[in-house]
Design a binder for these strands. Structure first.
Lengths: 208, 208
DNA sequence: TAGCTTTGGCTATAGGTCGTAGCTGAAGGA
DNA sequence: TCCTTCAGCTACGACCTATAGCCAAAGCTA
């Protein structure tokens, strides 16, 4: 077995990178998303601050890696939930609930993803890709709901999709801002999530 | 005329404080809300950084003064709009539109007020007071709408009020995050604002 | 096994931030 | 006219991001 281990060093390097991201996330939970200090992360890791730059070229790169990780997780949760439900409104509702549960369980990443709290940081296209995929997933489910007669065809128009996004963003945003430590079950705003599909349907009632 | 001028120095001091806030707001527009640097503000004002601490005891105090100013303006805009419309759903719609217009015109203050982008900063009770007043205003208008038969009585329950807040927060939040430079007229999400009262009414249709 | 290359650590340093301490001259009130 | 208050200043400490350059060890390759 010659190349059974695909680059022993690259593997260890990836482990360290993941460890850095975990510590950064933990730091952000207490110091605030924008308050992340790479120096403290380095010290907690047991190395001197400059050594951390061997793993990430800048502070923004750390944010971008976390942004990408968060978006991947979030997409996976929503996709799994939607896949386990009937297509259409039911899938939308399942994705909303799963997404809201994920955000409440990961409020720090949620802030990084849904607000833009870090001054100079703009997510890279690669890190943002899962968010685009999620948008396409939701579009497909709205189309499915239209085909099933659950929604008016206008729901699949840009304005309809924007409204759908605004609905879930609103409750999640309020939850993060006002009760960041609540669970999905106890949250004042997360309990509104199950009502959103019906609300959207009321905005786009099927013809006839 | 002995005390016609109420403390010449206090007046000048207040002018300087206001000037600092204006510069800080301008800085935040380019450097990001959390990226505000008191040093650059001081230099633009023509003084050395430590001298700025004669006017504000800390960076957080600057944020708090801006938070208070923003909330006062926002409340005034919403209150004026609501006062100029029929009570009930119409007043809610007018307040939503005025509020959305204000946020789009003042995106920096909006971010400070509706998200929590600055690590250690928590608004003081005094700065937050106008937001409480606005909540009471909206509650009163929902009650008026119920009395006029425009909404089901449940709309005035906590869950209903939370939903109402989530609706406007959602579109404004999406607008700020995705198109921060748009106007109210051109915004992809602000154009959804006029539809929100009807959407809320669909969630709480009056009995009978 | 021997040697070379890559790499992951280090120190030193530059330039930036917030915030405090303590001085001083001038403006304004008594 | 005197005296107090205050708004500026310099100097400083502690922290941050990020770069430059050194060095030893780990690991790949011949």
């Amino acid at each position: 077995m010659t190349s059974a281990t695909p680059d022993r060093r690259a593997l260890r390097r990836e482990q360290t990178r993941a460890e850095i991201l975990d510590l950064a996330l933990d730091e952000m939970a207490t110091a605030g998303v924008a308050g992340l200090s790479l120096s403290t992360v380095a010290r907690r890791l047991g190395i001197r601050p400059p050594s951390l730059y061997k793993y990430f070229p800048s502070r923004h790169a750390v944010y971008d890696a976390l942004f990408a990780r968060g978006n991947r997780d979030y997409l996976a949760a929503a996709r799994a939930a939607a896949g386990g439900a009937e297509p259409g409104l039911a899938a939308i509702g399942a994705a909303f609930e799963a997404g809201a549960r994920w955000v409440v369980a990961n409020p720090t990443l949620g802030q990084l993803m849904f607000w833009r709290p870090v001054p100079g940081y703009v997510p890279s296209a690669a890190a943002y890709a899962p968010a685009v995929a999620l948008g396409e997933l939701m579009t497909a489910q709205v189309r499915a709901a239209v085909d099933r007669g659950e929604l008016h065809p206008d729901a699949a128009a840009p304005a309809g999709l924007d409204l759908l996004r605004s609905l879930i963003t609103g409750v999640v945003s309020q939850q993060l801002a006002n009760e960041p430590d609540a669970t999905y079950e106890t949250g004042r705003f997360t309990r509104l999530v199950p009502r959103l599909p019906a609300l959207f349907a009321a905005a786009y009632p099927p013809t006839g």
